[in-house]
Write a protein that binds this DNA or RNA. Structure first.
Lengths: 237, 237
DNA sequence: CGAGGCGTTGAATCCCATCAAGAAATGTGG
DNA sequence: CCACATTTCTTGATGGGATTCAACGCCTCG
């Protein structure tokens, strides 16, 4: 639980399958995007695949009534653009200063032809996206405000480099549009968790997690390692 | 809008990419499942890929608290099982009498090796699953009861063979668990749509759609062909 | 300093879930 | 075919959790 930078375990152990894919980008020049800038827009011709070097990106779609939905957040090491046909199905915007490499899709596919072992990595990546989507759907359809926020914090906790600290580089409205709630409810729920002693406000955009297990309990997660660990948590309640 | 059996257009025209994949199943023996029977269970080793010949299947996951979530519904022509690693991430249950073929996954992958053109069809299928998941997330996070039901009806309308008729072979609780609401709200919303004159109750498990465009308007869909048609609808409002 | 974006908190409202009851449909056995 | 049990569907009454509307403090930046 304290391993730094460990991958989030979705459902079974998974040694960094996609490292091979990432290696393809090393020849590409590094680029940067300023906060708020778009890497690409929803609806644009999908001609590049992206690899994030540093920084945070939000991935979003819009409804005709102006509502925004955030599909997810990307950070260092993440790939985006593999799951498109001819057009981007969503937009990607820099949250903070972002460094990335991009690769022409045609070129990317040629490389894939040359190195067939990358095929399975590609599939692997797509399967992960599907799994992530389904977990997200589960959250949206079944969880209440507190469970949503706790789930989100757990997720961020595993992505943040410092143990016991969760970093929220995005603003409240990003979180709200990701969790399917309003900024007010997000704010209220965070306050409630602080009052309950589960998290502590730390520096700007950071919280200290006092009790990971309490967080997990309040998140009502499906498989918080449904082995002995899960049992233990149930008994401790 | 009246073309029978036309594929639902997700975002761009797509000639039946996966027909090649489907052809692989023709050598497999036909099987059937009775209503309520499971094709496979969530958590089981994923050793088969399935191709539906006829009937309807619900695809679902369970939460530790007993809640059920329905990821989607399958019908004739659909494939399922492509997006798994070693275990099924969800279960599949027959809604009515179902005919299908199955294929050992290892065999399936060998066939894929032999016919590399199937690779892209495989990717295509996974991308469709991702798109569907994201549309579903959008529904769950942004839409109210009426919009959800209208979206669902539109979706079913395109899957039903008879123009102007939407078939709902599944029961209310299936719909509820798919749309993230209760059976009561589903029922009330359908009643409301009937009172509004948008749909008419037809035979058991069927509704007649009086006005597709009204349905689309109430669904608040993103891309109801965002060309002139969309404009026209806006003007007609 | 003032403007504007961001975050928090309060009060009122509303949509949907919950609880409850009954109607309609389906199935089963005599 | 009917009586009975069970499941499915609908409708009503009520309450609660989240949204909405509003105000205010904090911070950054020009």
């Amino acid at each position: 639980m304290s391993a730094i930078g460990s991958l989030r375990v979705v459902s079974e152990a998974r040694p960094c399958d996609e490292d091979g894919l990432r290696a393809l980008f090393l020849r590409q020049p590094g680029e940067t995007a300023e906060p708020g800038a778009a890497l690409f827009f929803e609806g644009d011709p999908a001609c590049h695949v992206f690899h994030l070097i540093s920084g945070n990106v939000r991935v979003c779609r819009f409804l005709p009534d102006g509502h925004r939905f955030i599909i997810g957040f990307l950070c260092a090491g993440d790939l985006v653009g593999l799951s498109f046909r001819s057009r981007y199905m969503f937009g990607a915007e820099a949250i903070d200063r972002v460094a990335f490499r991009r690769m022409n899709k045609r070129l990317f596919e040629e490389e894939l032809q040359l190195a067939p072992e990358h095929r399975s990595q590609m599939l692997s990546h797509l399967r992960d996206e599907i799994t992530a989507s389904q977990d997200h759907m589960l959250l949206l359809s079944q969880k209440n405000a507190e469970e949503r926020v706790c789930t989100f914090l757990l997720d961020r906790l595993d992505r943040t480099g410092t143990p016991g600290i969760v970093s929220l580089p995005m603003i409240r409205s990003d979180i709200a549009d990701y969790l399917g709630m309003t900024i007010e409810t997000v704010s209220r729920t965070l306050t409630k968790l602080v009052l309950k002693g589960i998290i502590l406000p730390a520096e700007k955009h950071h919280f200290r997690v006092v009790s990971r297990s309490a967080l997990a309990r309040h998140a009502n997660e499906a498989n918080e390692n449904d082995d002995h660990k899960g049992e233990a948590q149930r008994l401790l309640r």
